[in-house]
């Protein structure tokens, strides 16, 4: 397999109450699909994806976490290693929105202010069931000084913008977090995934 120059590598941890759509957001981003039959995440799950931006290529490591309250005690070590925390809530579930404050605190406890936090209001497709307005989400994000976006993993709405937004906020190429050589073949991409990127990754082996 072709070795390439080190990619900038970033860890993103996905937090939020159960069933707000953390796994769905990740799956939409990874494979551009939505499934109603996800298994509940237990503990932590891991996926990685190479993202091709206009001026650079970054490798994102996505850490999906279990939403149930008691699993919180398992998560700090993942937060500690992450440069980005995506805190999701369900716009049709007010409690999940209120609980995002706890998640922000959890991240601040581990990382202080040295972290990018994005508040994500998911499930905007549930128009009739909405319990949290976009203004409320926006206000909360301002209050905490974090980024904000609304998405629908089901409808495929705003998922790419979410990740572009994150990528744009990441520290630049000059501060590479990765010191190790990496293979370009992304073993985590299963069949049925984003095939164009897949081929690109397998074929592209420039040794710069």
């Amino acid at each position: 397999m072709a070795k390439v120059s080190p990619l900038a590598k970033y860890k993103l941890v996905f937090l939020g109450d159960q069933s707000v759509g953390k796994t769905s957001i990740i799956t939409r981003f990874m494979y551009d699909k939505f499934d109603t039959t996800y298994q509940a995440t237990i503990g932590i799950d891991f996926l990685s994806k190479t993202m091709y931006l206009e001026d650079r290529t970054v490798r994102l490591q996505l850490w999906d976490t279990a939403g149930q309250e008691r699993f919180r005690s398992l998560i700090p070590s993942y937060i500690r290693d992450s440069s980005v925390a995506v805190i999701a809530y369900d716009v049709a579930n007010r409690q999940s929105f209120l609980n995002t404050s706890k998640w922000v605190e959890e991240v601040r406890t581990e990382r202080g202010s040295d972290v990018i936090i994005v508040l994500v209001g998911n499930k905007t497709d549930l128009v009739d069931k909405r319990q949290v307005s976009i203004e409320e989400g926006d206000n909360k994000a301002r209050e905490f000084g974090i980024m904000f976006i609304e998405t629908s993993a089901k409808a495929g709405f705003n998922i790419k913008p979410l990740f572009r937004k994150i990528a744009a906020a990441l520290p630049g190429m000059e501060t590479l977090s990765s010191t190790k050589q990496e293979d370009m073949v992304d073993v985590n991409l299963k069949s049925g995934g984003n095939s164009s990127q897949n081929t690109e990754q397998q074929g592209g082996g420039c040794a710069c």
Binding site: Q18, T36, T37, Q39
Partner: peptide, 17 residues
């Protein structure tokens, strides 16, 4: 929480689901 998880437990299984 149980109700949340029922459809997310081995989805697609001919009896469990």
């Amino acid at each position: 929480q149980i109700d949340h998880d029922l459809p997310r437990t081995f989805p697609g299984h001919p009896w469990l689901d």
